[in-house]
Design a protein around this nucleic acid. Structure first.
Length: 571
RNA sequence: GCGCCCGUAGCUCAGCUGGAUAGAGCAGCGGUCUUCUAAACCGCAGGUCGUUGGUUCGAGUCCAACCGGGCGCGCCA
């Protein structure tokens, strides 16, 4: 990547001028304002302050010691000490040509691959997946794709909620109220009905509650009949999950639910207790963080007074497994922001338990999806929105749009387009927001062809494709780039930054950076498309522009693919 | 009581180590199809970045206090 080459030279020049300087923070980034240059460095102003130098003079000395003529036609010092770099046309053309010829890309694999475990989605057995699972599922998948693309070893793990007190209720329901026919027809709905019925009954009748508790104890004690009911529920749920993930194009390397750790929990509790990390309090085992600045008054419960472990314990066992068995360098938990305290506690306990562990633990949290009223997204009836219903509606709304705009296409093709557009729109709506923000769910906005949406980007792809469909498929492989028009240059320069953007996504776990980038890229392409004829251009421009289109198409498609979004050939 | 998050244009949202004149879409107003997909594009208008202080060459971004809203805090996960 060119900016990295410039950066290395710049760091060397800084070291030559100020030998004691720490150059790790001397970075070269794209200029937000193209009129200043293509890349800029503003770290010298900070450096000057640290070393009590005049920033402007320092910048000028560094520039004097800097040779980046292989890539830049101009290097200037501006304002209080910005260094601005203007790429030379020849370097730009050469870089694009190289990517084209090598069949390579604008992404550079990391020099330091890490093992990154990503925990996301995590639905519950016997419950339908709902809108609450969508952000985790989509964000986690996109992050997994980006980390893989950067050359990291990624392990995705679906930590399913397949164990817990709800199974007492469910087993009572299964034993007393099960309708086999309904179970055949819609297993999850039937399981949900059982749970609700028993839960309702338990509220009024203490003996039902006692039954549920008794069945739970039997299950936990290894009762064969209850175990087999539980396994049946698990299998039914898994097939529901599988069908949703298949629709979304998502796969997991592992699906190790909470139950996988059952036989490790006693050991975990024993170790924590023996190490003096946990202590008894009101009959429960609790970890206190007495010296901790924010957790000092927030103890964590790891074993209930009835002797049962809870999700804190399970998460500790899970964490140990990931660190020990998978040798994780980095573990990402993609969950709702409301679990921040929980993960702070889990990470803090793990730190006491395995002080030598250097794995980076990150709670990649996200905000809520809101309805038009600004309150948590619900159906008109006030119920949670089921994920399958959401996917269905996305596809049917997209189908209506495709039919309206392109009704002459055969129905099967329209359905296929609608699938890609509808699901793409849904995913993109989530990914394009800053994950930590709450956002308002709006069908019209996400399916719009205007603005920062998936359909707009997909449409940009089909426009590029349209050029190739119209003309004969040209040999862009050996094309000579001869970019000249400002729109061509702007587009080409944007392409160069693709890899950098992916690195930013991975560094902060924020796919919305990629979305913004793709939207800007599509905007650059549109400007080019409006201003520069391709097929009708004279031969030299024509092949150069075809090559530029080819590269744009590659980046747009790969970028969308990294977000888990498909691109139809036509729209 | 303790802690986390949010407050940017009428609405929905971006805003990358603090960096140059705070951006986009919608809605509003005005333009552009004999020309590679107009499901598109161009232009205009729209802002005391919640308030007040502080840090500094420079603050939407960092710090403090306050106002307004959301969420979490030992036997659910």
């Amino acid at each position: 990547m060119i900016h990295r080459c410039i950066e290395k030279r710049l760091q060397a020049a800084v070291s030559a001028v100020v030998p004691e300087a720490d150059t790790r923070r001397v970075l070269v980034r794209p200029c937000p304002e193209p009129k200043h240059g293509d890349y800029q460095a503003n770290a010298l102003m900070m450096l000057a302050r640290q070393h009590r130098l005049n920033p402007r003079e320092l910048a000028e000395k560094v520039v004097a010691a800097l040779d980046v003529s292989s890539w830049c036609e101009q290097v200037t010092v501006a304002g209080p000490g910005f260094i601005n770099f203007r790429l030379s046309g020849s370097a730009l053309n050469a870089r694009l040509q190289h990517v084209l010829g090598s069949g390579g890309s604008f992404v550079e694999a990391t020099a330091e691959p890490r093992t990154v475990v990503i925990d996301f989605s995590s639905p519950n057995v016997a419950k339908p997946m709902h809108v609450g699972h969508i952000r985790s599922t989509i964000l986690g998948d996109a992050l997994a794709r980006v980390f893989r693309r950067l050359g990291h070893r990624v392990i995705t793990d679906n930590h399913i909620g397949d164990w817990g007190t709800q199974f007492g209720m469910l087993i009572v329901g299964w034993r007393t109220l099960l309708n086999e026919e309904a179970l055949q027809r819609d297993p999850i709905a039937e399981l949900e009905r059982l749970y609700q019925a028993v839960n309702h009954a338990a509220k009024e009748d203490g003996s039902v509650r006692d039954q549920a508790r008794a069945q739970l104890v039997k299950l936990q004690g290894g009762d064969l009949e209850n175990l087999s009911i539980w396994r049946r529920m698990q299998a039914l749920s898994q097939s529901q999950f599988d069908s949703v993930y298949a629709r979304l194009g998502i796969r997991f390397d592992h699906t190790l639910g909470e139950s996988f750790y059952n036989d490790q929990l006693a050991g975990v509790l024993g170790e924590l207790s023996r190490a003096g990390i946990s202590e008894e309090s009101d009959g429960a085992q609790v970890v206190f963080f007495r010296d901790h600045s924010t957790l000092h008054d927030k103890p964590a419960l790891i074993r209930k007074s009835d002797g049962a472990a809870n999700y804190c314990t399970t998460d500790l066992a899970t964490l140990r497994h990931r660190v020990k068995q998978w040798q994780a360098d980095e573990i990402l938990y993609v969950t709702d922001g409301r679990q921040q305290l929980h993960f702070q506690q889990v990470f803090a306990i793990f730190g006491k338990w395995h002080p030598a562990c250097a794995a980076k633990l990150e709670h990649v949290w996200f905000g809520s999806i809101l309805g038009p009223d600004g309150k948590p997204f619900k159906t008109r009836e006030g119920e949670v929105v089921k994920l399958t219903a959401l996917l269905d509606e996305a596809e049917s709304r997209a189908l209506a749009a495709v039919t309206e705009k392109n009704g002459e296409l055969p129905p099967t093709q329209r359905i296929e387009i609608a699938r890609a557009v509808g699901l793409g729109a849904l995913k993109y709506a989530d990914l394009s927001n800053n994950r930590q923000s709450d956002y308002v769910f709006d069908w019209d906005k996400m399916l719009s062809l205007q603005g920062n949406t998936a359909p707009y980007l997909q449409y940009a792809c089909t426009r590029v494709r349209g050029i190739f469909r119209r003309g004969e498929m040209p040999d862009t492989q050996g094309a000579t780039l001869a970019l000249a028009a400002p729109q061509e240059l702007a587009l080409a320069k944007r392409l160069l930054n693709f890899g950098l953007v992916l690195e930013m996504v991975a560094a902060e776990y924020r796919p919305n950076y990629l979305c913004s980038y793709l939207y800007d890229l599509a905007g650059d392409f549109t400007a080019f498309y409006e201003a520069c004829p391709v097929l009708k251009a004279p031969p030299v421009e024509r092949q150069s522009r075809l090559a530029l289109c080819k590269l744009t198409s590659l980046v747009l498609r790969e970028g969308l693919d990294l977000l888990g979004i498909e691109v139809p050939d036509q729209m």
